[in-house]
Structure formats: structure tokens, C-alpha cells
């Protein structure tokens, strides 16, 4: 009986090892399979038109076989950068406040709240955007800046996105600031600096690699976010000339059109190419922010 169990355990061991290895392979292979698949699908279009032309041409006229992605890329950039400009400073200040100026239990209390915010489905943020942010932009913000807007605009998309990535970035930043040893703060204070001077000159600098990567990860998150943005950004194919105009980011393009007009030749190939662009950009940003941490940490 004992012997049997022993053998059994051995078998189980190797069995589990195999499973773990397999899972690991799946995890590693997934992005590669995804990337290659997208590339193969978009290859048909790439044979016909050069990649540079597809990326930087303004002409999106599927019926005539023109698939310029530039308006979508520009819209995506606008929305993403603007969202980070809104969310970044808020997250930074909030993280500093929560880690430096409040009692410990406050942070313990806030952690689940932030996690809940991060877990809300994005369609809920989208509905909230339509109900609150769209009117806010059309009735208040646009008149304030002396322009007109339907409310469905780049800015609206950016505000909704900002709210969505705040919990995500905030969580990382809190971790970054919490990992700075108290003794560093003490060292700075003991040299006669005030708490605020310490935050400004020492803590932010120490946290810099972490801040860069948090923002980078926030960007890649924002760049790929689809449904909430799609609901409020207007989805007009144009290069937006201002933040109160509607735009049409890449993820919205894919989500809105895939499966719809696939009778048009090369249309699905063009959508696959936009997916590939999205995929590569997000991957690059993730990679770059992680590299930034490693590089910068060596320098401070």
C-alpha cells in the first residue's frame, strides 16, 4: 500500500510538472500566435499597398479600396495622451497624499475601493460618459472655451478614459511610493527639509522609474480600451482639429465594423492591420515602460 502511494506521488509529480510546463508554453506562445495571425490576415492588403502609405494616408474610402489609417491613429493618440494628461497628475498627487500624509488605516481602507473602481466593467463607464460627460462637454466645457461641440468628442473620450485608468495607475503608484523606505524620508527631513520639499526633491525622484512605468502601462491600457471610448467619442472618420471635435480611435474602428461590411474586398484585411497596429503599439509601450524601470533604476 505504501509503495503504491509512493509511485502514485511520483506520477502525480511529473504529471503536474507537465501541466505547468504546458501552461507556461501557452502563455508564452499566445502573443506570438496572435501577432502572426494578425499579420497573415493583413498580408493581403500589405501586398497591395505599402505599410507606410497605409499608416500615414488620410484617405479611408473602403469602396474605392483606400484604407488610410491615419485619422484613426491620430484619434487614438489624441484620446490617449489627453487621458494621461488628466489622469497622471491626479494619480501622482493622490498617491503621494495617501502614502505620505494619512494614517495607515486610511490606505488600508482605500485599497479595496480602488480595486472596486478598477473592476467596474468598461461599458458602465461608457454609459456614465454618455449620461454625464457628454452633456458636461457640450453644455459647459465647450461654451467655456468659446466653441461648439455635440459632446461626443475627443475630450469626452479622454475624460472617460482618464477615469478608467486612474485606479489602475493609482494602484501602481501607491505601491511605488510605499516601497520607498521611510529612512530616506527621514534622511531628507533630518537635513532640514520640510515634508513637502522631501516629497518634491527626493521621493518623486526616487519614484521616477516607477512613475514612468506606471504612466507607460496606463498609456498602453488606454490605447487599447474600446467600448467606453466608442460610446462617447463620436466615431467620425476625420483628423480631429481640436479636442472638442469627434474622432475615431482604432479600437472603435475595429469593434464597430468587424463583421459588418466584409463583402468589400480587403476590408477585413484592413481591420486586421489596425488590430495589428494596436497590438504592436501596446506591446511596445509595455516593453518600453518595463525597460525604462530597469534603465532608470540603475541611475538613481
Amino acid at each position: 500500500m505504501k509503495r503504491f502511494f509512493k509511485i502514485n506521488r511520483k506520477i502525480r509529480n511529473t504529471f503536474h510538472k507537465r501541466w505547468m510546463l504546458l501552461s507556461l508554453i501557452v502563455v508564452i506562445a499566445m502573443p506570438i500566435v496572435l501577432g502572426v495571425g494578425l499579420y497573415l490576415k493583413s498580408a493581403m492588403l500589405l501586398e497591395q499597398t505599402s505599410l507606410i502609405k497605409l499608416l500615414f494616408s488620410k484617405e479611408w474610402k473602403p469602396m474605392q479600396g483606400l484604407f488610410g489609417l491615419w485619422p484613426f491613429i491620430v484619434s487614438s493618440l489624441w484620446v490617449t495622451i489627453l487621458a494621461l494628461l488628466i489622469a497622471g497628475p491626479i494619480c501622482l498627487l493622490a498617491a503621494i497624499y495617501m502614502t505620505q500624509y494619512t494614517k495607515k488605516y486610511f490606505l488600508r481602507m482605500m485599497h479595496p475601493v480602488i480595486d472596486i473602481l478598477a473592476g467596474i466593467p468598461s461599458v458602465v463607464y461608457g454609459v456614465w460618459g454618455v449620461i454625464f460627460v457628454v452633456p458636461l462637454v457640450s453644455n459647459h466645457l465647450a461654451p467655456f472655451f468659446n466653441t461648439q461641440s455635440s459632446g461626443y468628442s475627443i475630450l469626452t473620450g479622454a475624460i472617460v478614459l482618464a477615469v478608467m485608468i486612474i485606479p489602475f495607475i493609482l494602484n501602481i503608484l501607491i505601491e511605488v511610493f510605499r516601497n520607498i523606505p521611510d529612512q530616506l524620508t527621514e534622511a531628507s527631513l533630518s537635513l532640514g527639509a520640510t515634508h513637502w520639499e522631501t516629497v518634491k526633491h527626493v521621493l518623486v525622484r526616487k519614484a521616477f522609474p516607477g512613475i514612468v512605468s506606471a504612466f507607460g502601462l496606463g498609456i498602453s491600457r488606454a490605447f487599447g480600451e474600446t467600448i467606453a471610448v466608442l460610446m462617447v467619442v463620436g466615431n467620425v472618420t476625420q483628423i480631429p482639429k481640436g479636442i472638442f471635435q469627434p474622432g475615431y480611435p482604432l479600437p472603435a474602428l475595429i469593434a464597430n465594423n468587424y463583421g459588418e461590411m466584409l463583402s468589400i474586398p480587403l476590408y477585413d484585411s484592413a481591420l486586421m492591420l489596425s488590430a495589428l497596429v494596436l497590438f504592436v503599439v501596446v506591446l511596445l509601450f509595455n516593453f518600453a515602460s518595463r525597460m525604462a524601470i530597469i534603465k532608470l533604476e540603475r541611475h538613481t
Partner: peptide, 16 residues
Amino acid sequence: RKKMGLLSQRPYPLPM
């Protein structure tokens, strides 16, 4: 605080 210099258990150089 300026009247006192502090040396801690392990050195914590400022990140500069």
C-alpha cells in the same frame, strides 16, 4: 532638525 545630523543603520543616500 538642522541642529542634528542623522546617521541611520544603513546608509540611505539621496537619489542624486
